[in-house]
């Protein structure tokens, strides 16, 4: 079930494809946003998506790559807490892509 009429989906995104309003997000929205990034979400993806949303709730900001990796390491351990693991799931600009799929604003200071 989705709140969205997909033709109007773009109206809910900013010009870079980030969700304009956090509370418009649900899992079906994430699937659609991921699809636009050519990513098919698996449980490994969801784990990171849930984590970045938790980060946002706690710290009230979207993390840049360095902080995202530190946080994954802290919460899930050092197997997943490596940039190569997260980049394999979400590509080279992983922090931006995860934030986008998770319905968060674009992280500041992302290089």
């Amino acid at each position: 079930m989705s709140k969205f009429n997909y033709q109007a989906f773009d109206d809910f995104l900013d010009e870079e494809g980030y969700l304009l309003s956090l509370d418009r997000w649900d899992e079906s929205v994430a699937v659609e946003l991921a699809c636009r990034e050519n990513i098919k979400l698996t449980e490994a993806h969801w784990e990171i998506i849930r984590l970045i949303r938790k980060f946002y709730q706690r710290y009230q900001m979207a993390p840049a790559s360095r902080a995202l990796i530190s946080y994954v390491k802290k919460e899930l351990g050092s197997d997943q807490g490596r940039s190569v693991y997260v980049m394999r799931l979400f590509g080279g600009s992983a922090a931006k892509t995860v934030a986008k799929i998770a319905g968060l604003p674009k992280p500041d200071n992302c290089i």
Partner: peptide
């Protein structure tokens, strides 16, 4: 935004 929340991220940024 509560400043302490943001300050907690300093450590995550190294």
């Amino acid at each position: 935004k509560t400043i302490g929340r943001v300050l907690e991220t300093l450590e995550l940024y190294g």
